[in-house]
Amino acid sequence: MTRTARLVILLTAVLLLGAVGTGAVLHAAHRAGQRDEQQADGPAVRTGDVSLRPADGRTLLVRNLAWGPHRDEIAAVPTGDPDGPRTASGVKCLRFHAAAGTAVCLQAVHGALEDTYRAVVLDAHLRERHRFPAAGIPTRARVSPSGHLVAWTVFVSGDSYAGTDFSTRTALVDTRTWQIEDNLETFHVVKDGRPYHAADVNIWGVTFADDTRFYATLATGGHTYLVRGDVATRTLTTLHANVECPSLSPDGTRIAYKKRVPGAPADAPWRLYVLDLRTMRETATAERRNIDDQALWADRGTLVYALPGDYGSDLWTVPADGTGTARRLMVSAVAPAYLG
């Protein structure tokens, strides 16, 4: 074989190998694109722009738990099609809530030796405005209806509300000034009409009425209470016993909450109730399973909450008036926020 023939054969082989390699890369890219559109055994998830001021109708934002490249990202779906394709934002949060063009995103920062946590305030395009260190594992987050106040709760010891061996830290920030109350336990407590002081006071689960008033859970002496908070006077006033993780209705008249019920297992003690703030009358919802979440009002008559699912959590709904039945709203999702 001549030298020229050998060179021709070598060149042909190189070209063939290059073509095969290019084809493999393009095929892999195509498959990756397909995976970006459709998660295995789960909802379709695709990348796109996510805004806190949606232009195309009412929108539901969630932390997406579907397995794939967009797990833990905040994703959007139309409220009328919660099972439809999700638009992933690229922003990952452990806990999330949003209102009036402001969001709070609780994130883990993975270190070489241990994880740390932070609370990030986001604008309407989910861009960072400000960040604060968080003292422990994120568990609750809320934004006031105006977007001017944000609050979050973390576990600083323990990792479950079910027992008594845990401690939380709840912070509140004014997004107009970035002034922070980094521990609501420093507020003055009024219990049963009298000033109250105890070393075991624990506060969690803020829900806002406006830019001054909020509600939360106060625990002390082995009992929990619904408290009304006042930012201006830095006070917490007890209103009702056996209330945890309150959520204020859109009209400000009712509180959805989890209540410990007699006879329930120690590790699954709660059922979902609604409290009328004018009469203090309690109504049990039709959801009879254990609820370890801070429920959200989808509208004036419907509650949304998380229950364990195949990929972590699913979202469920139930009427707030005690009628009807619980139904699953979305699979593989948690931390909902309704916009628009």
Rank of each mutant, 00 (worst) to 15 (best):
M1Y: 04
M1G: 11
A5D: 14
R6L: 09
L7C: 09
L7T: 14
V8A: 14
L10V: 13
L11T: 14
A13L: 14
V14A: 10
L16Q: 13
L17I: 14
A19Q: 15
A24Q: 13
A24N: 10
H27G: 09
A32T: 12
Q34S: 10
D36Q: 11
E37M: 14
Q38C: 08
G42F: 05
G42P: 02
V45R: 05
G48F: 05
D49E: 15
D49G: 06
V50L: 02
S51P: 00
L52K: 05
A55D: 12
G57V: 09
R58Q: 14
L60W: 03
L61N: 06
V62G: 02
V62M: 04
R63L: 10
A66G: 07
P69T: 10
R71G: 02
A76E: 03
A76T: 05
P78D: 13
D81Q: 12
G84C: 08
G84S: 13
P85I: 12
T87C: 03
C93E: 09
L94M: 10
R95E: 07
A108F: 02
H110I: 15
A119L: 03
V120G: 00
V121M: 03
L122Q: 03
H125K: 09
H125T: 05
L126C: 05
E128F: 01
R131W: 04
A135C: 06
T139W: 01
V154S: 04
V154L: 06
S160Q: 09
S160E: 10
Y161R: 10
A162W: 07
A162T: 14
F166Q: 12
S167K: 15
A171C: 07
T175H: 00
R176S: 01
T177N: 02
T177V: 08
I180S: 12
F187Q: 06
F187G: 02
V190I: 15
A198F: 04
W204V: 11
D210L: 07
F214W: 06
T217G: 01
L218T: 04
Y225C: 04
L226T: 07
A232N: 11
T233K: 11
T233P: 00
L239M: 12
H240N: 13
A241S: 11
N242V: 08
S247G: 08
S247P: 01
V261F: 01
P262S: 13
P262F: 02
A264G: 07
P265F: 01
R281S: 13
E282I: 12
E282H: 07
T285Q: 04
T285G: 02
A286Y: 02
R288T: 15
I291L: 12
D293F: 02
L296S: 07
A298Y: 05
A298G: 08
A298I: 11
D299K: 10
R300W: 06
L303V: 08
Y311K: 15
Y311A: 15
G312I: 11
L315C: 09
L315P: 00
T317N: 06
P319K: 15
G324R: 12
G324F: 02
R327C: 08
R328F: 03
V331Y: 04
P336E: 07
A337W: 00
A337V: 02
Y338F: 14
L339Q: 01
